[in-house]
């Protein structure tokens, strides 16, 4: 997928673990792992809002568009 989630970098910048973020945004660790590993198909605005609030960032800081060449 051309959209990548830069959750790792943001967690590192905020000195926060995935488990801690999961508790703060009230999302299961399993779902956050899906998001982190880029396996998620879609993201709710409520999830995006909660992550941006806790990591003090903008949606653009979390998501990145990297075009992939298709065969």
């Amino acid at each position: 997928m051309a959209i990548t989630v830069k959750l790792d970098d943001l967690l590192h910048d905020n000195r926060m673990t995935l488990t801690e973020l999961a508790e703060r945004v009230d999302i299961t660790l399993a779902n956050l792992s899906i998001l982190k590993t880029g396996k998620a198909k879609a993201m709710r605005f409520t999830t995006l809002e909660a992550i941006c609030r806790e990591l003090k960032c903008q949606p653009g800081d979390l998501l990145r568009y990297e075009p992939v060449e298709e065969d």
Partner: peptide
């Protein structure tokens, strides 16, 4: 359902 399962 598949779409919902992949929604975070």
């Amino acid at each position: 359902q598949e779409e919902l399962d992949g929604t975070v």
